[in-house]
Design a protein around this nucleic acid. Structure first.
Lengths: 203, 203, 203, 203
DNA sequence: CGTTAATCGAGACGGTACGTCCTGTCTTCGG
DNA sequence: CCGAAGACAGGACGTACCGTCTCGATTAACG
């Protein structure tokens, strides 16, 4: 599945008049992102606040996006990064890498932002679609690693790939977004999780 | 930890005048819950909408709760149910029961409601506290089952209880709230998850 | 036409229990009248205000009248006084008496109250009916005086009785309710008006 | 006496921002007038109802008038029309014209509206002042016609002008506002009234 | 004298309107 | 084209009453 997306979709206009500033685009999307990750729910984010934070007139925003939903959608799209590069040697290491990239750098922010977007996900199917588009590549990468492990004998032959995916990503999500279990330390989270999932709880 | 909570806190007033109706309390909290679990974010829930849905005047709500946050907090408290009864024979069965009760009946609604409350959790520490109060009993129940398993030899002696907790609850949460991985079926979810976590992914 | 009216209609109950206080009835109607003649419109008069002014509980009012309209209606009825006694000698004197009794004593208050009731007259046909019932006897008295005058030759044979009625009552009303022309003095108003109407404006 | 009045008083602002819409002003005043003449008392007219009827947001009303009283006052001002043109030949004809213009076209509406405003007149001196300002020009016009009649001998030399004014306007008012005497027909009302007043009731 | 029922004050109830504030959109201004 | 600023329709806020209903306590006549 390929989702090709441009952040400011009607930018290819030409002709007379002052051209649109690319800086402005970035400033707006950045402002949305900051507001989101500061714990504001989607409906609590007003165009007015975005305009103020970006140092921009309200009209300038409406010139680029038809409404708030489109703006938020584009801001979510902008959170999408390149897929992580995998070494491809050990399945365990690749899984650790994949889980780890969900937790690095801006991921604490990302997690908070994603959590704040949740009500929006239930309301807007468009937003749901975009969110899936952001998630799916990582999911697919993990699937292929798991399948490789089955083929190479590093993982059980009868492994349920989808369930394994969920068991790896679920805790990461819960911890990222909600810090669900405060007793689990952040350090070596990825390694500990992967090792646990590989080995299981039985003796 | 014990959290003793009454939903309508100042009801024990006495003296002259017509007493407050208990039906009204229920109707209001129920209305909040329905709005929450229909995918409205906390800030999108207006007191006016609650009043309309409950068939109640706005003043009747304000007579009981000083503001929206208090109302939402109490509504969350009302979601707290009794802890599940465990058979106490097999650790595996008890874990299945615990995971299962997170998914039964109204839990799909509960999950959606919880997801919609997330932005509020970041804003209101009071809400965070109450949410923890609702969660902690289940967490503690699962902890003691896990410890029992270690003692009885059903689980590894070096098991990280907190991590195990997260690995069991995280996927449940992700699936409940977000239906994160649509490829994992709902049927036998608890059994499949517990068995997977017990056994691990390795051959 | 006969309108038989009792102010507090269901008073004839008997049997055990504390009887209704006649004082309370009077106090309530009096309170309504005072509020009306202090320049409050009918809708601006609240049962609460009436109860407060009469020193009575709201329930006490609702026990006697089913709603505000009925209360106001009864209060209007209470404004009805006995028809004036006419000497029957001179038509001019009898007209002066009739006009004069519209202006005596409490009539300034009555006028103000009536003015404040006007919006209600448009809304409530029941109120209209009652108001007519209060007005009609005076109107009829004046008609018979006028007809007597025609018969006795004191008035023109071709006099339009209804129009004469209006020309006598209209200015009185306008001046009572609105003090419409502040340049016309209150003293000898009735005499001046009647003499003017009798004589006309021509040389 | 000259009363210069503008309906929307602070409209002459300049500077940036979207200018106020003149249509909106008209729609609001028109809505007030319609509500008034549909038999609503002044206090029964809610700003909310005005806004709804005018298809306007409440804030738009409050941007122009500080409170309900000011709005009603301005609406009354808007009822003021140009003084009628008089032929100046016969006093009788001019009086008929003056009385007649009080009864034409929208005057039935005007009468009802005025009646509904009466309670307000007792409460608000400002409203009283404005109402006088609307009435006075017509009163003055009639006075000068009467004085002309005295000078020309068409009317009695010792005529009390103010009383004559009241005798002409009072019945008109009573009939306009209250349809006080339903037995007097609307057709030829002005002619009949003026002829009656000129001639008097005596033989 | 005790029963009984109507009394009164008080306050909860479902509503409606208040006047304020804010949002998303639109429209103008000056640069 | 851009920023700023303000008007606009709409809607929620929290308050204040309204008319009604429902209590507890009091009170006065009847049995």
């Amino acid at each position: 599945m390929t989702l090709s997306v441009d952040v400011a979709p009607d930018q290819d206009r030409k002709g007379p008049g002052r051209p649109r500033s690319a800086r402005v685009d970035e400033a707006i999307v950045e402002a949305v992102f900051e507001l989101l990750s500061s714990g504001q729910s989607a409906d609590a984010i007003s165009i007015e606040a975005v305009a103020a934070k970006a140092g921009v007139g309200k009209a300038t925003i409406y010139r680029r996006w038809p409404n708030k939903e489109a703006l938020l959608t584009d801001a979510v799209l902008a959170m999408k990064g390149p897929p992580p590069e995998l070494r491809g040697e050990s399945v365990r290491d690749d899984l650790v890498t994949l889980i780890g990239t969900m937790r690095k750098k801006r991921m604490a922010q990302y997690g908070k932002a994603a959590a704040c977007l949740m009500p929006e996900l239930f309301k807007s199917p468009e937003m749901t679609r975009v969110y899936q588009g952001v998630m799916e590549p990582r999911r697919e990468a993990m699937r292929s690693v798991l399948r490789r492990g089955i083929a190479s004998g590093e993982l059980r032959a009868d492994l349920d790939v989808e369930l394994a995916l969920l068991v790896l990503a679920g805790p990461t999500l819960a911890q990222n977004m909600l810090r669900w279990n405060p007793n689990v330390p952040d350090e070596h989270f990825a390694e500990n999780l992967v090792d646990f999932v590989l080995r299981g709880a039985q003796p």
